[in-house]
């Protein structure tokens, strides 16, 4: 006996295409608006302003050494004529991360609150992470056409699991006495979530967001196959023409963007680092010392 799952999936896809076209259009419009909006802003930003923003952000969140790296590496990207491609990629990453968080955070919270939800969601997350991307890239293109929208959706599918998992984990790992204290002082379920659990789960949630960003960057090249654009195109062109040099330039640009995003988002779950922390610590000293003395 054989099961023909493939036929079933085919007819399901066709059924959705026939009956849910308005819904698909609405999703495409919503995601398209977000992606194109972000892309519009980023592409309109002149190189020097963009460079300055990245360098300042690096200086603020990470430190002076990393700010120098950011400046030099982005200058290199511009000289490889990949700046606008990088901004397209960045807008895709930002849009898909936003969507992933929008869906992933509530899902992670729901998993943390109910073992049943967790038991159902966990295998779905496994599926999303392990299913080869090409498998859902085709239906995404069928549902939403070519371009940035199916690219964003495919990226969301691939990159969402970490933020869900780590939100769930972060909330579950909040010290049991904090939760007890919250309950003992009369928190409602919502107050417990927002005043006790989420604030204490922030480092874990930010680690999830960081992973989501990294994964979405790794989807960029694949998404360019359905016309998502950006640096992925450069890499794809390089591969198609067997032009190793072009492909390598695109690869370098992806890596540079990855390193910058990684370091900056990693710092978000932590305290301010580097020069700013030193300055702020200095200002806070007079208040901190009496505690040590007593």
């Amino acid at each position: 006996m054989t099961f023909d799952i493939g036929d079933g999936v085919d007819s399901a896809v066709n059924y959705i295409l026939d009956n849910f076209a308005p819904l698909l259009d609405a999703i495409a419009l919503a995601i398209g608006t977000v992606t194109n909006g972000i892309q519009g802003v980023l592409l309109a930003t002149p190189f020097l302003l963009g460079l300055a923003l990245f360098v300042l952000l690096s200086l603020w969140r990470v430190g002076i050494g990393f700010a120098v790296f950011t400046g030099l590496s982005l200058w290199l990207v511009d000289h490889m004529s990949l700046w606008s491609a990088m901004m397209e990629t960045l807008s895709l990453v930002i849009a898909s991360t936003l969507v992933a968080m929008l869906i992933g955070l509530p899902l992670g919270i729901a998993m943390a609150r109910s073992n049943r939800v967790a038991a159902i969601v966990r295998p779905v997350l496994d599926l999303m992470q392990t299913m080869p991307a090409f498998v859902y890239l085709i239906p995404a293109a069928m549902f939403f056409g070519l371009g940035a929208v199916p690219g964003t959706i495919a990226t969301v599918i691939f990159s969402m699991p970490p933020v869900v998992r780590l939100t769930n984990l972060g909330i579950r790992q909040v010290h049991v006495e904090f939760v007890e204290a919250g309950n003992a002082f009369g928190c409602t379920a919502a107050q417990l979530l927002f005043k006790v659990q989420l604030p204490n789960a922030i480092p874990s949630i930010m680690a999830g967001v960081n992973q989501t960003i990294m994964l979405s960057l790794s989807m960029v090249v694949i998404a360019s196959m359905i016309g998502a654009g950006g640096i992925g195109n450069t890499v794809l062109t390089g591969i198609q023409r067997l032009d190793v040099g072009t492909g390598f330039e695109g690869g370098i640009a992806v890596v540079i963007l990855a390193v910058i995003l990684d370091r900056i988002t990693q710092s978000l779950g932590k305290e301010r680092a580097g020069i700013w922390r030193t300055l702020l610590r200095g200002a806070a000293q007079p208040q901190a010392t009496p505690a040590a003395a007593a």
């Binding site: 010290h175 006495e177 904090f178 007890e180 204290a181 309950n183 003992a184 002082f185 009369g186 005043k195 006790v196 604030p199 204490n200």
Partner: peptide, 15 residues
């Protein structure tokens, strides 16, 4: 719990 009974914990449980 809000108005009549409150609690102090062994490991302080300060947020």
């Amino acid at each position: 719990r809000r108005h009549e009974v409150s609690m102090v914990f062994q490991s302080f449980a300060l947020l």
